[in-house]
């Protein structure tokens, strides 16, 4: 049951919760018009303290497609936040206007604090470096749609496994399923944190940490790519040295399985070269498009069950 619940972290979600959302998203995709007024008279507030046009528009589109209304905090630099109003007071205000609050914030724990303050359900649209639960829902849903299952698959996650909130949420979400094998592909500086490793061991997931995609590409059913940010390296020359090894090109995919699915939370900068877009592996645009039905499913289940 998701009705009335806050969605703060993947850790609060069971396999059953994921499956409930996936089934609802299936139903929505089958007959989108059937749901076009189910959230009439409901209001969703979006509060993006950190800008993310994609995620905000995806949530807003989802709400509008369900017949609901949207209010938006606007650009934080221009709103009262810039004048020193804190997160807590802003959330209290939105709580009195809206039926559900969607928040994005740079700081760790911001969404959790918002959920403690608000009476209405709060959905985390990304905070800190760990949590982006709706992105994980979309990622898994895309895999399920394209491969027909999640269990048993061999999955590679590439890029920033330490600070990337999308990769962290994706890996945490995989522990809810019985995947075949997990490859963690990253430069040594950006390996998963110890607690992620503990989480994987606890969940009984077979995983291996490697530095190069080429070592494992032939095994993969899914390759989840992410961005490596320059700011993560204290020494810019170190960044220049590693970045090339983590750019996905036609060459680096040599030997890949025919039905390999490449995902990316987008936006990308240069970590997947454009030549890959025209290969059958490239599924990240499809993944992005599935963001709307998955978020529709979530909003519907939270607001009316």
């Amino acid at each position: 049951m998701l009705r009335g619940r806050d969605i703060i972290s993947v850790n609060d979600l069971s396999r059953h919760d994921f499956e409930e959302i996936f089934r609802m998203a299936d139903e929505i995709l089958e007959a989108p018009d059937r749901w076009s007024s189910i959230l009439r008279s409901k209001i969703m507030a979006t509060a993006f303290f950190e800008p993310s046009t994609r995620t905000r528009l995806s949530f807003q589109t989802a709400m509008l497609r369900l017949g609901g209304e949207v209010i938006d905090l606007g650009e934080v630099e221009k709103s009262s936040i810039a004048k020193g109003e804190n997160l807590s007071d802003t959330i209290r205000m939105l709580d009195s206007y809206a039926d559900v609050i969607v928040i994005r914030h740079r700081l760790e724990g911001a969404a959790k604090l918002a959920a403690e303050i608000a009476e209405k359900p709060v959905i985390n649209a990304g905070d800190g470096s760990r949590n982006h639960p709706t992105q994980a829902m979309i990622d898994l849903y895309t895999i399920r749609r394209l491969h027909g299952r999640i269990d048993g698959l061999t999955i590679g996650v590439l890029g920033d496994l330490k600070y990337g909130r999308a990769t962290n949420s994706f890996i945490a979400a995989l522990t809810r399923f019985r995947i075949g094998k997990l490859y963690l592909i990253s430069p040594p500086q950006l390996r998963v944190r110890d607690d992620t490793r503990e989480l994987l061991v606890e969940a009984g997931i077979e995983f291996r940490e490697v530095e190069r995609l080429e070592e494992v590409v032939e095994d993969l059913d899914v390759l989840y790519a992410s961005r490596i940010q320059k700011e993560r390296f204290p020494d810019p020359s170190e960044y220049e040295m590693v970045r090339g090894s983590y750019v996905i090109t036609g060459e680096s995919l040599r030997g890949a399985k025919k039905n390999l699915v490449i995902l990316h939370p987008l936006p990308r900068v240069d970590e997947i070269s454009f030549e890959v877009d025209s290969t059958p592996y490239a599924k990240y645009f499809e993944q992005a498009a599935l963001g709307v039905p998955v978020r529709m499913a979530l909003l519907k289940l939270i607001l009316v069950g």
Binding site: G84, N86, S88, L107, G109
Partner: peptide, 11 residues
Amino acid sequence: NCITNQKNEPV
């Protein structure tokens, strides 16, 4: 970067 270390939040 933890929200509990922000001075103007009552947390």
